[in-house]
Design a binder for these strands. Sequence first.
DNA 1: CTGTTAGCGCTTTCAA
DNA 2: TTGAAAGCGCTAACAG
Lengths: 315, 315
Amino acid sequence: MTQKLTILDIAKLAGVGKSTVSRVLTNDPKVKPETREKVEQVIRESGYVPSKSAQAMRGGSAKVVGIILSRLDSPSENKAVSGILEVIYQAGYDAVIMESQFSAEKTNEHLAVLQKRNVDGVIVFGFSGCDIQAVESLEHKAVVIAVDTDRVSSVGYDNAGIIELAMNRFIEQDKRQISYVGVDPSDKTTGLMRLNAYKACCEQASIEPRYRTGQLSHESAYQLTDELIHSDTQAIVCASDTLAMGVAKRLQELNRTDIQVSGVGATDLLSFIFPNTFSIDPGYYQAGRASANLLIQQLSGQQTITHLTQQASLQ
Amino acid sequence: MTQKLTILDIAKLAGVGKSTVSRVLTNDPKVKPETREKVEQVIRESGYVPSKSAQAMRGGSAKVVGIILSRLDSPSENKAVSGILEVIYQAGYDAVIMESQFSAEKTNEHLAVLQKRNVDGVIVFGFSGCDIQAVESLEHKAVVIAVDTDRVSSVGYDNAGIIELAMNRFIEQDKRQISYVGVDPSDKTTGLMRLNAYKACCEQASIEPRYRTGQLSHESAYQLTDELIHSDTQAIVCASDTLAMGVAKRLQELNRTDIQVSGVGATDLLSFIFPNTFSIDPGYYQAGRASANLLIQQLSGQQTITHLTQQASLQ
DNA sequence: CTGTTAGCGCTTTCAA
DNA sequence: TTGAAAGCGCTAACAG
């Protein structure tokens, strides 16, 4: 790391005024090509790196977006973050990422830090019990994922569609005995909404609903399986791949190869290990991209509060 | 987002000079307690947030560390990042995270961006074929994970120890027919080093080595299994949990419940699905913490280039 | 097209 | 103990 060069050093070295250097940096069109070339050459040779801090302070924009997710090791969230990263990086932004660990308090702390850092915008992954208020005060500078709110833009997963997709697949195969394993309805999205979707599908197809809910873990699903299945059970729709793993594992032990299982998450592992399964992809990656695009458009003033729903697809 | 308040506004509101406000912000001891109290009150009531950009520019440090990982959805890396985040956040730093996607070129681009941002330090996750040179020029402002270099501090995984742990476990159980499934030795760490460790263990225990290497995917391991096993095979050590999944799956199909399988990664899923397995934890999370601690100590000048090796443990 | 001149919000002498 | 003033590195009028 060489000595810190400033715009003034470059100006001197190139024999121009510092504003000309600045113009080159900001791609101002009104610079004579030769002058630009000369300045660029000096910049290249000297290894000068403009200070973002100074630019940020002057221009007001740091070209940074904050991302608050619940856990870095949540496969759904890190897929979405990959999508976000790709888009914002393309647009010249960088990301500062923080983990809320499902704590509303931490989320708010993070939000405060991000604000202090003059981030241009924020993308927040919702979780049950998260306090959306602080985010709402950011208005058009924020986008939330997987959470309901009118005040800021959002990208949601099509929780009903996800389950319908699985149900319809089974119904098309003339299965009628379709059970469901989900998570506790106290979880709004993965819990309640998916369960309700299951019930609605049953209603519509005149299927007798049969379900259990529990924790979001394979063990939980594994244990619920016995309570759930009948001799005539044909398929089990699960609210997530983790649950599907647990269910499929138990079915394997019971030699119930006749029962099909579906999950949510598009883990390739599920169908690799258990042939009798498939998984619905809620579109995490695309949702990430969408939310980032939304945010960037809003930051440039081209877009107002918008609510998107990511479509699911069949793996 | 309310109107941007500056240090001057606070000064006026509190009826003091702006330098006094600055002193309060920087915890300068020479401020009369009453004055400090008054200023703090105004800050609290007005919801004033000092601009990090300005502070960074003035003070030189942005209190940011850059993290370059290969893929956000790599379980090993995101566990490590969680560890990093925890440590640096504690120390008042924030993180800007970028994905190299195993491209040396992208890594260098990212490095340039981070430098432009005046980050205080950088943590880089190595990968085979990564160009460590650019990182090395950062000297004491960088720490690399899982890569060999003398020029900057590093935290490595104990690739040999990981395999030894698994081998010894089997040897203690009086198994002698222990095979190995790994990845191509062109990958230095997960490939070559683990394979060599396997060979060394065999040598030492007078075991006939028997192994195959391929891609880092369950499919690859699944296919290699048939080539590898004999009627008397007792155990298979795998270079990763992903491989172990593939192997265990194939063994299950072949009804070879007599063969034990070990993996690396501490995925709870592996032993949940396949009872005859266990996994070695290379200590990703702790390695993350260690690297962050190293970096922070170096930044504060308390430590020089250091090389750490993360110890593995039995799940 | 280009140089000069003000600041951006903050920290840090330097006097008072 | 405090205020005034001088920049940090950069961008953006404003004149040439």
